[in-house]
Each structure stands twice: as C-alpha cells, then as structure tokens.
Design a protein around this nucleic acid. Structure first.
Length: 907
RNA sequence: GGGCGCGUAGCUCAGUGGUAGAGCACUACGCUCACAUCGUAGGGGUCGCUGGUUCGAUCCCAGCCGCGCCCACCA
C-alpha cells in the first residue's frame, strides 16, 4: 500500500500504539544484557486528567526512555498513580452530597469501599490520555500508592521510623483546615496577599485607671483568646506598663502586659495582643512567659465555649463582626487602617487556615534531611539545571518537622493502636499490636486504632523503591534501583523530590536517582499560569485531536529550553504538524522513486559526491541530537532534527538527487554535451542505484533520530520503508538501534564541493528573484575566471545547477559577455546573459548595494586589524579568521566593482 | 525581608566573548513530475538602560528600570 497523499495523524497513532503495547515493546527486561535505565513517573493523582504540565513532563520522560531504549539500555519507565488523599476524598464526598448523603452517615469502612469503587470506575483516565500522547511506560507494572504492596511499604516505613524515634506524636499548633477538617503541612499552605484592615483596640490597664494600651490586630475576633499583651522591653512608651495588667474587654479576663522582643515598636501601636492558641508567634511568646493557651475555636472555626456566651457558636468571620460591633459600642476602637497583608489559605480547600492546637504525628525531617543534603553536596544527585540545588539546599537546611497525620478517611491509616490508658503500640498490623499490648499489660487488652491517615506525600516519598517491590527483596529492586533520571516540575521539589531523597537514603542506603531534571511550567501565550479559574487552559487532548500527538510532543520538546517557562503558542504546534507533513512527503518522494532500504547499504562506500555529502550531514546531525538529549537540552535536539530533516534533507538533498533519479528525457542536450562522454548508461544506473539506497538510508536515519520526539509518524514511515525493502527489517523502529555517529564518516571534500553547488544555485536564484527575471527567460550562463578545481566541480554538477537554478545551460568561458548580470562566487564570476531582460538601472543599484555591503564589512574588519592590541592580544585563529574574511570580502568587492564597470560601459 | 529567573525581529522563543537565529506573521514571485499543511527570494533587531572588565560585550561584572516566581513569624 502506497503512502496516502496526506499525513493524517489520527489514522496512524492509535494502531501503532496498540501494536507496540501488544508486542511488549515498552516492557523492561527485553534486553537483559543492556544496562538498566530507569525513570519512575511522577505519579499523577488518581483523580487527575491530562493537562499541559503532564503533557510536557511525560513527553520529556518518553523522549529519554525511547532514546535510551534505542541505545540498547534495558529501559524501565515505571508508571503508577497516587491515591491523592484529600483530592480523592473530596471527589467522592461531592458525589455523596449529590445523593443526599455524606460519609458520616455511611461510616468509615463503607466510605472507603465507595472510594475504591470510584477508583475502579473513574480513576486513572489519565493513563489512557498518556497513551494517546505516546507514552511508552511499562504499563504491566502499573502501581498504585494504595495497593497492597505499597501499603505494606508505607506501614513498614512508619513502624521503623517510629522505632528509631524519627516519627513521634506531638501537641502543638498546626495548620488546620476548617473546611476539610484536617491538619495540613506547611507546604500545603498558600500565602496570599489580601486587602484587610488593621484595627487599633484600646485595652484598659487595671493598675492605671483611665489609661489604655492600644493593640493593633488584623484579627479582632481572636482577642477573645488573648492571654497577654506584649511590648518591647526597650519601648519607652510602655515601660511603665510592663508587669501590670489589662482587663480584656468583652471577656473581663485579667491578663499581663509582658516585655518580649517579639513586639516590634515599629509595627502597629508597638503593643501586640498575644493569643497563644491561634497564632504561631504568639504561641512561642506564650511559652516564654508561661501564658495560658486558650483555644476559642472548634474544628470548623466556630467559637467554642471558652468565649463569652454571646459569641458562642459564631463562625469566625461572623464573630469578627460581632466583636467589632461591641467594641465600637464601648468606644474602644481607636482607629481602623486599610492594609494589605498575607493570609494563609489551604491550597486544596481555598479557605483561611487556622493555627490550631492539636495532637498530630510528626516526622523528624531535620534528621532525615542531613544525609539527603550531603548526597547532593557530594554530587551523587545532580539537579539539571543546577540552580535548583540552591532551592533544595535552602529548604532542606531550614526544614521543619513534617506533620504527617491527616484527619481523613482515604489514605494509609496510621499503624498505631492505643490501650485504654493511652499507651501507644506502633506495629505492622493489629495482631502484632495486640501481642505487644499483651506483653505490656500482662494480659489481653483491647486496643483502639488511630483514626488518622498519612499525608499522601508520605507514600509518594517511597515511590522509587516501593514500586519496585520493597520491602520484599525483588529482582526488580535489585536491578532497577537506584533509578537514573527523575523528570519533574519545580513546584514539587519540596513536596516530593526532597522527601524521596530522604526516604531513599534512609531505607535503601542509596540515592533514589542520580539526576533530577527540573522542567519549566507551561503557561498560556501571555505567560499566565494556566488555571481553571482563569479559563486559560489549553487542553493537550484538543491539540492532539487537531494536530496529532507528534506535533504536540515536538512542540513541547522544542520549547523545553532550560530555565525558562514555556508560553505555549498554538501556532507553534501547527508549525510542527506541518513539519510532520513535510516528513511524510519526503517519504512519499522516496517511495515514488523506489528508494528502497538495503540492509547491506554501507554509508562509507558511496561514490557520488552528493551522497558522500548527505552521509556526512547525517553524521553531524546524529552527533548533535545525541549530545543534546544526553545533556537534557531537548530543544537543541529537536531543532537539530528539524533543521536536518527539513533544510538539509528535503530542501537540498532531495533536490540535488533529482537529476540522478529523474534524468531529463533522452534527446535533450546534455550539459556536458559530447558524444560518448564519460557518463555511460551503466554509470548512470550505478549512480541511481547508489542514490536510491542512500536516500532511503538517510531517511531512515532521520526517522531514527526523530523517533523519541515523534514516535508515531516515524514508526509509520519506517514501517513503510522497511516493508518495501527487498529484505524487510524485522524490528519496529521503537526497538531499533540508535544511529552511531562514531561509526559514520564525514567527507570534507564532498562537503565543500556540495556547499559550492548550493551557494552557486542560491546566488543565481537570488539574482533572478531580485531582477524579476521572467520564469520563461532562457539563460545560458557562463562561469569566468574559475580555478581548475571549480572547473572540475562545474563539469560534475552542471546538470544539477542548470536544473536547480533553472538555467538553459552553464558553461565555462574566458570572457564575460556584454549585457550580463554578474555575480561573484568565490574566485569566479557567473554571468547571466540578460541583455534586454533586465533593468540596467536596477542591476546597477543591486551591484552598488552589494559593494556597499562588502565595503562596510571590510571597514569593520580593518578597524579591528588596525588595532594593535587586537593583533597582539587576540588569539591567532581569531585574527586569521578576520584576515580570511577580509580577503573574501575584498575579492568579492573587486569582482563586483568590475561587474559594475562593465555594466556602465555596456549601458 | 531573603532568594531566583526573565527583558533579543510585529508575536512566541533559541543562542553565542569575535559574521544575531528559528517558528508564526509580513512582502514579491511561483499550482517545476514528494509536499500550497508547499517552494523560491526578501523586508524586519543600536540583543531593557547606564557604567565597568576586555583588544573586542547581546553574552562576563555592578547599578538602575520593568515583569514574574519561590521562601519568610510581621501584629
């Protein structure tokens, strides 16, 4: 079946993917002899669907995996999903809400069953979307953070860290989400700048009748929990009040005025109300002064019974209004300022977070971080780009205890059981806990399991080894850990990357990966972060539908320059779809000209200059692409492919071989003209045969180099190419060997020769266009003043030049004919006899412009060369280069000037 | 407050201590036997500003202006 006239990605992408998957092309372990190359996928949320960030992240991983697979490595791309505790629980709760019920009515166990049902039905749609993108993950090995094995890993890690004292329970202020009703970690808090007010409130000083101390606050309702007022010890304004007391308005509580450095005389009134139960700083102040901690909020951030009756049960913002109204009535509000300040919000719930005093489980991150910092310092893990190491270090060196417990139902339930007296037993399972309890109490004792589950990121932190089977000693773990490259966005360096390094080192004794490639964020065309609320989301699936997965992948790769965000422009995707079309048509050209792939084709033994040249260009392209991918410079690799395929192969090679493959009709005058000339029929046939094979080979090399970026169209064209071959190749492109540039020759002489041809053709075309020479004009060009080498080149390539430059003929001559347009190619001059066709004045202007250009170049270079310090200090090769350039320009100028003279004479 | 990044063609972006590049857009010509999702030729940039280092700076350094992000306990 010949290739269809047009490239239709939708027709080829599905079938190839299906075949690859059926044939096990993605499976690790195919090449057991190969050194393993492993990437673990950043597990998408089970609730997730493919967005542009995923598309970029997974495209780059797939490029690396396909590249290394072709290079003979035993490539494992380990896929899997994250149970996404909060996100998933929210989804199912919303469903329950629609059905008029809620999780509490259902009960924990039934609720969890419901979540599993949801997961089986609706979870993981993203994996089918990744398949559409072409992701060659080893799907057979798909894992889920909540599956049996990974859950066991989580439990074991918890139990061991607890034994080692690295996990402990503590009562302190946490970030409490009053909507989701759970604690969250520092990282899940998003600080937003918001407009608000600063209320200045007068508190009467007990020992100084008639005197007040004014405190400023953005949260007046928390005054109900105040247990002190703090002033700076050196603040003269308040010196006389230190040690005295205020009677807290509305409450009547007698609280001390304390001196503490925390109070900043520059801020507000210089006196600050202290609410240890609801502010992290105040909590510390409270500890220093042994203040009472009064909790005035319940879990939903409604005021509780620790406040005066009038306020009980009020929601926090209602409470604020009520408190302010009463203070206003009492005349205690001195002043209200408008200010902008930062307020903590839950990143999932979007509501204001409350510092709240609860008991939670913590991991001793500081201890775990130490080896993790050292590993990066020693270079065992390298971040690309390297600057991210600074981000990593600064966070890790100031790391806080990690709050790992969550008051949710969906997740890994904490393996802790409590005895009647509160004694805690942390064990692998209930049976072990009961045994431990029996030993402890001396009799069988019923236990109560901890209700809480673990932070989702706790299980993600184990991902590189838990997915490979840990804690079992599996062959996979042995073979594929440590993994090689982690590809991720910078937004989860703290959440995920740092924690994987900590856990990997602690439990495996080895880093989890050697390289962390940190890619950019994908933004919209204007540079804004894509988000649902802004409505500026570009759906990758829509782009795949419209332009094909290959075009999208290539776009993302070509734009993945290090250290910069990607502003995705649709026009770019369209441009690269056109590139795929171009490739398709190049393959059609080969097909129509019977360019068949020959297994015995030997690139180093071609004889035609044009073929020698394309072999060399292929070699250079293969080198460039290989080096760029190895250095994670995806954009350079993509550009090198693009340039080679389009501008070298299609624009020139295909055009250059047409005269060989499609000789002009017999009977036409051959440029070399002579009877019984050197080119015999058999010589032509040999050249044709070689060229056909060479063209097929070069095309196949392009397909190889492009395959990591555009797997579908390359596989399709390869499929065509190999099946048309007299001895069809048995392998799909996905598992073929990567081009080995080191084994390919570069023929410099052939390159120079072909570059001369290209220059000659380009210059002639340029003049034709500039002079508006009619297409029909017959031009018998002559070359004057050529060296013998140039004469030889012309003899070899005259046919080529006449066809590409659309001449009647081109021959050597000793004289420049009158009325000719002249152009300078190195040492020689090409004359195009265009008397009567051209506009003399226009030609004169053209020549003058050229001369001017040469003059300005010469002047620039002369200035440099006249500079003594340049000549004495610049490296020799730079000076030589300048001299050569000057000579070239001078030569050109001379010829142009001569041409101008002749034109004037003729005119 | 600390840290990081970015200002290059009309737009979106590469890039380099010594001739500034791509895609899209634009102009002219062209349905030449792979391709009009194309071809050929062309226009367009004092590489944010000011200093410094250097023989030479768009590139290195400093400051400034503009934009963005991350971290942080400012009532």
């Amino acid at each position: 079946m010949p290739l269809s006239k047009t490239y239709k990605p939708e027709d080829i992408e599905g079938p190839h993917y299906q075949r690859w998957e059926e044939e096990g092309a993605f499976a690790a372990g195919r090449k057991n002899t190969g050194k393993p190359y492993t990437i673990v996928i950043p597990p998408p949320n089970v609730t997730g669907s493919l967005h542009m960030g995923h598309a970029l992240n997974n495209t780059l991983q797939d490029v690396l995996i396909r590249f290394e697979r072709m290079r003979g490595r035993d490539a494992l791309w380990q896929p899997g999903m994250d149970h996404a505790g909060i996100a998933t629980q929210m989804v199912v709760e919303r469903q329950l809400d629609e059905q008029g019920t809620d999780r509490h009515k259902l009960g924990r166990s039934k609720f969890v069953d419901r979540v599993w049902e949801w997961k089986e039905e609706s979870g993981g749609t993203i994996f089918n979307q990744l398949r559409r993108l072409g992701a060659s993950a080893d799907w057979e090995r798909e894992r889920f953070t909540m599956d049996e094995g990974l859950s066991k890993a989580v439990t074991k890690v918890f139990v061991e860290l607890h034994k080692q004292g690295l996990i402990y329970k503590d009562k302190r202020l946490v970030n409490w989400d009053p909507k989701l009703l759970t604690a969250i970690s520092d990282l899940e808090v998003e600080n937003r700048d918001v407009h608000g007010n600063l209320w200045h409130i007068a508190y009467p000083v007990e020992e100084m009748p008639g005197r007040h101390i004014v405190v400023a606050t953005t949260r007046p309702e928390t005054m109900l929990g105040d247990t002190a007022v703090a002033v700076h010890p050196d603040d003269e304004r308040y010196a006389s009040m230190i040690g005295k007391h205020v009677i807290l308005p509305l409450v009547g509580r007698r609280i001390p005025i304390v001196a503490d450095d925390y109070a900043d005389p520059e801020q507000g009134s210089g006196a600050v109300k202290i609410t240890p139960g609801h502010d992290f700083n105040d909590y510390e102040v409270g500890r220093r002064h042994k203040l009472e901690v009064i909790n005035i909020l319940d879990e939903k951030a409604h005021l509780n019974d620790n406040v005066p009756e009038a306020f009980r049960g009020l929601e926090r913002f209602e409470a604020r209004k009520a408190v302010l109204a009463q203070l206003e009535e009492l005349g205690l509000i001195e002043k209200i300022d408008d200010i902008t300040h930062t307020v903590p919000y839950g990143d999932r719930s979007g509501v204001v977070i409350e510092p709240w005093l609860t008991e939670q489980w913590y991991a001793d991150a500081a201890t775990l971080a130490k080896p993790a910092i050292a590993a990066v310092e020693r270079g065992e893990i390298v971040f690309v780009p390297k600057q991210w190491e600074n981000t990593y270090f600064s966070w890790m060196r100031n790391i806080q205890p990690w709050c790992i417990s969550r008051q949710l139902w969906w997740g890994h339930q904490i393996p802790a059981w409590y005895g009647p007296d509160g004694e805690v037993f942390v064990e692998m399972d209930e049976e072990a806990a009961l045994n431990a309890a029996k030993l402890h109490y001396g009799k069988e004792t019923p236990l109560q399991r901890d209700d809480d589950v673990l932070d989702t990121w706790f299980s993600s932190a184990l991902w590189p080894f838990s997915t490979l089977g840990w804690p079992e000693k599996t062959p996979e773990l042995d073979r594929y850990y440590p993994t090689d490259t982690l590809v991720t966005g910078f937004d989860i360096i703290f959440f995920w990357v740092a924690r994987m390094i900590m856990m990997g080192l602690h439990f495996m004794g080895e880093v989890p990966f050697h390289t962390v490639y940190v890619h950019a964020l994908v933004r919209d065309e204007k540079g804004a972060k894509m988000s649902k609320s802004k409505g500026n989301i570009i759906d990758p699936l829509e782009l795949i539908d419209e332009y094909g997965a290959d075009a999208l992948r290539f776009t993302l790769s070509a734009m993945a320059a290090q250290g910069r965000d990607i502003k995705l422009a649709k026009s770019r995707v369209e441009g690269y779809r056109n590139f795929a079309t171009k490739l398709w048509n190049a393959a059609r050209f080969c097909e129509m000209n019977v360019c068949l792939l020959r297994p015995d084709f030997e690139p180093s033994s071609v004889r035609q200059p044009v073929n020698k040249w394309i072999v060399g260009e292929t070699t250079r392209a293969a080198e460039a692409v290989t080096e760029a991918i190895q250095a994670y410079r995806f954009n350079e690799a993509a550009d090198a492919c693009y340039h080679f395929a389009w501008h070298t192969f299609c624009d020139w090679y295909v055009e250059l071989i047409k005269p060989i493959l499609l000789p002009r009709d017999a009977g036409e005058v051959r440029p070399q003209g002579g009877e019984g000339a050197a080119s015999s029929a058999s010589g032509d046939e040999l050249a044709q045969e070689e060229t056909r094979a060479c063209a097929a080979w070069a095309l196949s090399q392009i397909l190889h180099l492009l395959h990591p970026f555009m797997p579908f169209v390359t596989e399709e064209l390869w499929d065509k190419l190999r099946h048309d071959s007299p001895i069809p190749d048995t392998q799909d492109l996905i598992v073929r060997d990567w081009p080995n540039a080191a084994e390919l020759p570069i023929d410099k002489a052939a390159a120079t020769e072909m570059e001369w041809v290209i220059k000659l053709v380009t210059e002639i075309r340029s003049v034709r266009a500039e002079m508006n020479v009619p297409v029909a004009a017959k031009m018998n060009a002559v070359l004057v003043g050529a060296h013998s080498e140039t004469q030889h080149r012309l003899a070899t390539h005259a046919d080529l030049v006449t066809r590409l430059a659309r001449l009647e003929s081109i021959d050597l001559a000793s004289e420049i004919p009158d009325g000719a347009v002249q152009l300078v190619i190195d040492e020689a001059t090409v004359a195009l006899p265009l008397a009567g066709v051209i506009d003399i004045a226009a030609e004169q202007a053209r020549l003058e412009k050229e001369i001017q250009k040469a003059d300005s170049e010469i002047a620039k270079i002369d200035k440099k060369l006249a500079n003594d310090s340049f000549v004495s200090k610049a490296p020799a090769h730079v000076i030589d280069e300048q001299r050569t350039r000057r000579a070239d320009h001078a030569q050109a100028k001379e010829k142009l000037a001569a041409a101008l003279e002749r034109l004037k004479e003729a005119g």
